[in-house]
């Protein structure tokens, strides 16, 4: 599904050039559950941004579902991303002024679905995540765990093939963290390809594959059955 070849990402700030990712080779098959770990500044979030087509590599090749996407414009990337890739964030990124329902529906606004179909889809995912009774609430009226469940609901509303999660349990207590991990596992079991950045070794161990980064390079790439 994903094939990165010699991908490098450099940032320039004034006269200083920083290499965030250095000639990375990585293949991820459909249905995999990959945990990306590593110390702060090793390039995890940069890699996630590239995988999610939120950024483009400085050099190298990125093929998504067989299609080369490394040198596309931001408009083309948005079109490729729409409906195929979703995100779950550490800080939830919910819009305070919108209700839970509207936050979830936001993911469908720019797709092909009609308004009625969008509302139906939102109702389905909220039902699935046990949030139907909170549909008219605002994020500030929910607990952290509930907020992250709304974020997951938004992420899966468009039925993406690839779900990228950036420290999804980072702002949650252990009980809520476990619940979120269970949900992600379920989604992966249903066939969604899942790539998760995490600091937690415990949560990384739940993945089927672990990629450890150091200084922008892949240090370790192991499958659960190899551990």
């Amino acid at each position: 599904m994903i094939e990165l070849t010699q991908v490098t990402k450099r940032y320039r700030t004034g006269q200083v050039e920083t290499t965030a990712l250095d000639r990375i080779d990585l293949q991820i098959e459909a249905g995999e559950y990959v945990a990306i770990t590593g110390p702060s500044g090793c390039g995890k979030s940069t890699l996630l941004g590239l995988l999610g087509l939120l950024d483009v590599p400085t050099s190298g090749s990125y093929r998504l579902q067989g299609e080369e996407v490394a040198a596309r414009s931001s408009r083309e990337l948005a079109a490729i991303r729409r409906g195929r890739i979703s995100f779950v964030f550490q800080s939830f990124n919910l819009v305070d002024e919108m209700t839970v329902h509207d936050n979830v529906q936001l993911a469908l606004r720019y797709g092909e679905l009609s308004g009625k179909a969008q509302r139906q889809r939102v109702a389905e995912v909220l039902e699935r995540l046990g949030l139907s009774h909170r549909a008219d609430h605002h994020p500030s009226q929910l607990s952290g765990g509930q907020q992250q469940r709304v974020a997951i609901a938004r992420a899966i509303a468009s039925r993406p093939a690839l779900l990228l999660a950036d420290e999804p349990t980072g702002n949650l207590d252990s009980a809520h963290g476990q619940e979120v991990m269970r949900l992600l596992r379920e989604l992966n079991d249903e066939g969604t390809t899942l790539v998760m950045v995490t600091h937690s070794a415990e949560h990384a161990a739940l993945a089927s594959r672990g990629v450890r980064l150091l200084d922008g390079r892949v240090l370790v790439d192991t499958y659960a059955d190899q551990l």
Partner: peptide, 19 residues
């Protein structure tokens, strides 16, 4: 300033310039 997060999310979900 107030709607920055929302605008980022809209962009994330495919909103174009016109949107």
């Amino acid at each position: 300033r107030r709607r920055r997060t929302e605008l980022v999310l809209r962009r994330l979900h495919g909103a174009d310039d016109v949107a």
